[in-house]
Structures are given as C-alpha cells and as structure tokens.
C-alpha cells in the first residue's frame, strides 16, 4: 500500500514538503488539543478545582452556608480519622496483590490463547465472559462459593482434605467473615472478574508486534524463552506501562467488589479508601471532608504512577 506511493519526484522537494508537513502537524495538533482542552477544562478541570477549594470548607451541599475550615479537613484525615490508616492499608494491600497477579495471569492467558491453532475466538470469548457477567450473578455465585457451611469451596476441602486425606482441618472456613481471609477472598473474585479485561489489552498489544522480529531472531538462533524475554516482553512494554498504570489507578480507587461482597466488614478489614470517602460524602453529607480525602488519595496515586513510569522507562527505554 505504501510502496505504491513512492515517487522520486516527491522525495526531491524536501524543504517544501517539510513546511507542508509542519503546517499539517500544527493543524492536527490544533484539531486534537483545542477541543480536548475545552472539554477537560469544563468537564473535569472546573469540577476538580471546585472540589479542591471545597476541601478547605465544611462543605455540605444541602447547607446554605459553608464554613471555611482551612486545612482542618486534611488535619482530621491525617491525625484524627480512626479509619484513615485502616482504609489506606486495605487499599494498598488490595492493589499490591491484585495488580501484579492480574497482570501476570492475563499475560499468560493471552499468550496461551493466542498460540492455539484452533478455537482462538472461542477461548478469547470465554475468558472475557466474567467481565460481562452481571453483578447479581457474580455476587450470588461467589457468596455461595465462599459460604462456610454449604459453600462449594468448603465442600471440596471437606471431601478432599478431610474425608480422603484425613487431615485435621475444620472445613467450615469462614471466608467472608474472618478478618484475615475476607480480603483475599474479595481479591480472588476481583482478579477473576478483571482477568478478561487485561487479557484483551494484551491481545491487542501482541498483535502489534511485527512477525519479522521473531523470524529474524529465529534465524539468529534465538531460543523460545529468549524470544519471549527479548522480543515479546520489551515490545509489549507500552502495553505493560498502560496496564500497570491503569491497574494502580483503578486498584487504589477500588470500591465495587467490597460493596457487593462484604460491605467493608468484618471489622472494616475490607473497607477500601474510596468506600470510606463515599460514606463521608453521601451518608454523612461531609463533602468537604470527602474532598480532602480525595485529594490525599490523588497525591498518593500520582506519586506511584510516576514512580512506575520512571522505573519502567529507565529499564526498557519506552
């Protein structure tokens, strides 16, 4: 397609085409950036600045007057909020576990599915299904899986470990009511639900790796692992950066899985940061305080995303 366009005459008039090119680029930049700037300014910029200002007020939208409290909200969050540390730890725990595991599993599944000689489409669809499975079905099934007395997981444990192997274990494991097990149980469901999403990203990334790279490397006698390590992984780098960054951003703002499965219990061990913030805003009408929490989280996420950018850029130069 491109080869047919090549003509020596056009290649000759270089300086002129350069000028045209730059003008064309400016046009493209204007077309891309100006509407974008207007949109983001109106739709996100103003609300963010508004919220930031209101984080210094005792803001209740229903109230006629709002009291200025200075840094009071931030101070309360950092020093007096009894749950602040707990919800931050929960959120970090969730992110640190689900993001890497989700990424590795999705990469493995994507590579495996892509390597199949037949039924690729079928497997791609199957692994995407949890993403579209309804919240109701997801929560009913997973709560049943985790149920202590009649749940499938405990029944299997009872059958295999206790009845067959005669291990001295009580098979009534309280998956969702134990302070230590509830969070991992929610994480497992969350990884299951999100796997197909990340897989699709990797599939899209894998397809953009030109096959010539592999062929050239094979001619040079590269082994399989070397192909994966030195071609697939580095060329998936932009995708990895994306998956990791959005994973961190999404993980730190996790809300729905806990809301559906545990409502933050037991003992607030599964209450994430945004859940806490949501309650402050919409059940206590403390929007000012919720805003200060939002900007604290904003700063934390910003820090880690840029840290990640720095680390990954220096390692692979992307």
């Amino acid at each position: 397609m491109i080869a047919t366009r090549r003509s020596p005459a056009q290649a000759g008039a270089k300086s002129q085409s350069n000028r045209i090119r730059l003008a064309g680029q400016r046009g493209m930049i204007a077309l891309a950036v100006l509407p974008l700037a207007v949109f983001y300014l109106v739709w996100v910029g103003i609300p963010m600045i508004y919220t930031f200002i209101m984080s210094f007020y005792d803001w209740n939208p229903l109230s006629v007057t709002q009291t200025f409290v200075g840094a009071g909200n931030y101070l309360e969050a950092l020093t007096r909020d009894p749950l602040f540390k707990r919800v931050l730890i929960n959120t970090a725990y969730y992110t640190v576990v689900t993001v890497p595991i989700g990424l590795i599993l999705a990469l493995v599944v994507a590579v495996m599915v892509n390597s199949l000689p037949r039924f690729i489409g079928l497997f791609r669809a199957i692994y995407f299904l949890p993403v579209v499975t309804s919240v109701v079905a997801t929560s009913i099934i997973w709560r049943w899986l985790y149920q202590s007395r009649f749940g499938l997981i405990n029944q299997l444990i009872g059958m295999v470990l206790v009845d067959t192997l005669h291990l001295p274990i009580n098979p009534s494991i309280p998956w969702l009511t134990s302070r230590t097990l509830a969070m991992p149980a929610v994480m497992a469901m969350s990884i299951w639900k999100g796997l197909g999403f990340t897989m699709v990203l990797f599939l899209a990334g894998l397809t953009s790796i030109p096959s010539v790279y592999y062929e050239a490397a094979k001619i040079d006698g590269a082994g399989v692992w070397q192909l994966f390590r030195h071609i697939t992984i580095p060329l998936l780098q932009p995708t990895m950066i994306f998956v990791l960054a959005t994973g961190i951003i999404g993980g730190m703002q996790v809300f729905a899985p806990m809301y559906v499965m545990t409502q933050g219990g037991p003992a607030n061990m599964t209450k994430p940061f945004v859940y806490h913030l949501y309650e402050k805003a919409f059940t206590l009408y403390r929007f000012g305080y919720a805003s200060s929490l939002a900007f604290i989280l904003f700063a934390i996420i910003m820090f880690f995303v840029f840290l990640q950018f720095q680390v990954m850029k220096t390692r692979w130069e992307y």
């Binding site: 974008l36 983001y40 996100v44 103003i46 609300p47 963010m48 508004y50 919220t51 939208p61 960054a245 959005t246 951003i249 730190m252 703002q253 940061f273 945004v274 913030l277 949501y278 805003a281 919409f282 929007f287 919720a290 805003s291 939002a294 900007f295 989280l297 904003f298 996420i301 910003m302 995303v305």
Partner: peptide, 15 residues
C-alpha cells in the same frame, strides 16, 4: 489527562 483518572468520582459528581 492522566491526573483526571486519579480523582475518585464521588467528589466530582456534584460539581
């Protein structure tokens, strides 16, 4: 553009 993804939705809803 990235930063706009990092602010939790509950506080942006009203503005």
């Amino acid at each position: 553009v990235l930063a706009t993804m990092m602010i939790p939705w509950p506080v942006l809803l009203i503005p």
